[in-house]
């Protein structure tokens, strides 16, 4: 996987680069909008990470120009002005996703996974991990063949953990997937729902599948 980072702040770029390289990406860095556009037009990237505030050519114009020239490479926009309008502007310009700063690397990885998944063959509707199965269409959940009744929110929570394919899902991503809130509710709703889901899924079976990764979030996987 080849990825282009267009970001003028060297420290952010270095961090993104090292994180993505450790996840197996081949990373190219451009430090201004003009250079980023030239690099992107040369092609060969699977995904672009573009900051909005850039010298020479801002991120929105870069994406507009790229789309106007018929390039369809998926783009994730990054911005410190993480407001709702900026998100809309970014998506209007032709970006595929928008990630407001400050963000966690785990959140960036989640977005990348879901973007890259779009181009891969569709997954079967029934997701499974160990003896836990979840049908994305009928919302039917079973553990060890035994049917488990989940509320709407609980099944949304399980689905969002499943989709991370073993990766850590941050509190913020859970909140936006399950409640669709674009704000930090400052409550312990997530903790309450994780506890309820654990009671239903992990209490009478082993091994425990829902894991807390302190400081990062939650993951659905067999081993830590």
């Amino acid at each position: 996987m080849r990825l282009l980072i267009v970001e003028d702040e060297p420290k952010t770029a270095a961090l993104l680069g090292s994180t993505l390289r450790s996840e197996g990406f081949e990373v190219v860095w451009a430090e201004d909008g003009k250079g980023g556009l030239d690099e992107a037009l040369r092609g060969g990237f699977d995904v672009l990470l573009v900051d909005i505030m850039l010298p020479k050519l801002d991120g929105l114009s870069l994406v507009r120009e790229l789309r106007a020239r018929g390039h369809t490479t998926p783009v994730i926009m990054l911005s410190a002005r993480g407001e709702v309008e900026q998100r809309v502007e970014g998506l209007d310009a032709g970006a595929d996703d928008y990630l407001p700063k400050p963000f966690a690397m785990s959140e960036l990885m989640a977005r990348l996974r879901s973007l890259l998944r779009r181009n891969s063959p569709p997954k079967p509707s029934v997701l499974s991990l160990g003896d836990l199965t979840f049908d994305q269409v009928t919302r039917e959940t079973r553990r060890g063949g035994k049917r488990i009744e989940l509320s709407t929110r609980e099944s949304l929570l399980l689905e969002c953990l499943f989709r991370a394919e073993g990766g850590v899902v941050s509190r913020r991503d859970i909140i936006s997937a399950v409640w669709e809130y674009d704000f930090d509710p400052g409550t312990n709703l997530v903790e309450v729902y994780i506890r309820r889901l654990r009671d239903k899924i992990d209490r009478e079976a082993s091994p425990s599948l829902i894991q807390t990764v302190r400081g990062l979030g939650y993951a659905l996987r067999l081993q830590p």
């Binding site: 090292s18 966690a104 785990s106």
Partner: peptide, 18 residues
């Protein structure tokens, strides 16, 4: 706004440690 970039870097660096 100015705090957001350093916060991203701090968070990311600590994530790498974890």
């Amino acid at each position: 706004h100015e705090l957001k970039t350093p916060l991203t870097i701090l968070h990311g660096t600590l994530e790498q440690t974890i």
